[in-house]
Structure formats: structure tokens, C-alpha cells
């Protein structure tokens, strides 16, 4: 399955990308996706501290990602 992944803030600097279409061989939870991302982008050492949003809503670690989902990695926010 293919998921669209969005990178922001420090994550954008680490990956050098704003977004990426990633092909996953199996269904993954957010927790498994974190491991996958860390392998692909070893600079993301703080990945376990980052929040995740799927289709523009925050999700928990055990959320199962579906085909065509838009998954955003949300490093600590600092608006205001």
C-alpha cells in the first residue's frame, strides 16, 4: 500500500523533504511505522517523541494505517 507522508519543522530539515509517497509491504500501526521511518531516515532519533496525524487528526500509537492515508509526523508544536 502507498501512503503519503508529510514532514514539518525539524523533521523536514532531517529528511530534506516536505513529503514522500511511501510504499509499505504490509499494514502497519503508527508504532511500526515509526520503526520503519527510523530505518529509512536514521536522523529521526526523536521519532518516538513525535505525534502523528492521519488525515488531519491526531492518532495514537496503535492506530492502523490504511492504504492512501495521509500521515503527518508532528514534532513538538510551538505556535502562539
Amino acid at each position: 500500500m502507498t501512503i503519503n507522508t508529510l514532514f514539518f519543522g525539524v523533521v523536514m530539515d532531517i529528511t530534506g523533504l516536505r513529503k514522500a509517497a511511501l510504499t509499505l509491504e504490509k499494514e502497519m500501526t503508527i508504532r511500526e511505522f515509526q520503526e520503519y521511518l527510523l530505518e529509512k531516515y536514521p536522523g529521526l532519533i526523536d521519532i518516538n517523541n513525535f505525534a502523528f496525524a492521519v488525515n488531519e487528526s491526531y492518532v495514537k500509537d496503535d492506530f492502523k494505517i490504511q492504504d492512501k492515508d495521509v500521515v503527518a509526523i508532528i514534532p513538538p508544536v510551538s505556535g502562539g
Binding site: G9, V10, D13, D46, P75, P76, V77, S78, G79, G80
Partner: peptide, 25 residues
Amino acid sequence: TLKETVPIWKKEFFEDGEVWVNAHP
């Protein structure tokens, strides 16, 4: 709540560089 939940990121620019605020908690 805005400061905790809204996906907005602040980058500070100094004389000698720039840094994402709270990027490394």
C-alpha cells in the same frame, strides 16, 4: 491549548544560526 495542539512550528533566527523551538524536548 493552542500552544499544545495546533500544528504550527516556530523557528528562531539568531546572529549565529537558527533553531526550531522545542524541536528537541
